[in-house]
Design a protein around this nucleic acid. Structure first.
Length: 271
DNA sequence: GAGCGGGCACATCTTACCTCA
DNA sequence: GATGAGGTAAGATGTGCCCGC
């Protein structure tokens, strides 16, 4: 049971319920923070931390491209410092956020203004293809190895790994976050499959036991079987305290049931 | 106890890439 | 072979919560 609980799995809840049907929780911070999307010039830009002078030949072409894009961002003075074109992403989020929670005219105006800003920004970006970083095999392998050792990183480890990979610490952090989330998802799927199989097995077992019970009842009416059997062959279910006939098939049924009692399913109701 | 910052989980968006008709 | 649609993987972002200071 402990092993099972450690997975954090909640059977049925996550699988059977369509999330779309669940009421969307009210955003706890309805007031949208523009400063998060478009940091003021006085705020430090995170992308400035990117290494721009990697050792020649050691850096794959894709990374070179990314660096160029970043440089372009920095040089263009675009309002959003994200290297991956998150001005678009942030804008779409903003748009959703503003319109989802009851539209106020002021917000609409703000949106329109931002839309203009975005268009200008897009025009500025034209020619600078927004490239998404793809990790090289070597980088992925190193990250995987590191993840196998410890699924979370302390700041020192993060920094060291980032330097080793020629990535920003934030990118390493994000990779680990995504990796944890996707590992968990995968594990949940595996657990779900396992539980499905258990459920099928138990259903079969239950069906068979019902059948046996019917047969025993029929036997009982035909002849008082309890009176004929030696006491040693009678067995009693420890949970419901019912006496069962001690023939071989019944004993095996209890043995099989015991398998599940000792496993994750220990609820007496299973009897 | 309140405030703040950092880290994390989680939901979601976005882009790259693959498959297939 | 070229191409577009659809699906999937994975990098990135936004937000809320928790915890330590």
């Amino acid at each position: 049971m402990d092993d099972f609980c450690n997975t954090g799995l909640v059977l049925g809840l996550g699988r059977g319920i369509s999330l779309e049907k669940l009421p969307k929780p009210e955003p706890k911070r309805p007031c949208f923070r523009l400063d998060r999307l478009f940091p003021s010039p006085s705020e430090p830009c995170l992308t400035l931390a990117l290494t721009e002078t990697p050792s020649p030949g050691a850096v794959p072409q894709k990374i070179q491209v990314r660096i160029d894009v970043n440089k372009a961002y920095e040089e263009s003075g675009a309002p959003n410092c994200s290297p991956t074109g998150s001005s678009v992403s942030s804008f779409s989020n903003l748009h959703r956020e503003l319109f989802n929670g009851g539209v106020k005219r002021e917000r609409e105006q703000a949106t329109e203004e931002l839309e203009v800003e975005k268009r200008v920004s897009d025009e500025e970006e034209e020619g600078n293809a927004r490239k998404k970083l793809r990790l090289t095999k070597e980088q992925s392998a190193l990250l995987e190895d590191s993840f196998k050792e410890h699924s979370t990183l302390n700041p020192k480890q993060k920094q060291a790994l980032a330097e080793q990979l020629n990535l920003r610490p934030r990118q390493v952090e994000v990779w680990f976050q995504n990796r944890r989330a996707r590992t968990k998802l995968k594990q949940t799927e595996v657990d779900c499959e396992f539980l499905k199989r258990c459920c099928e097995t138990l259903t079969d077992e239950n069906r068979r036991l019902q059948k046996e019970l019917q047969e025993l009842k029929a036997l009982k009416f035909a002849s008082p079987v309890y009176m004929q059997l030696p006491a040693a062959t009678l067995t009693m279910c420890p949970s419901c305290e019912r006496i069962g006939a001690g023939d071989a098939s019944t004993r095996s049924s209890f043995a099989k049931a015991a398998h599940f009692f000792s496993g994750p399913f220990t609820h007496p109701a299973a009897c």
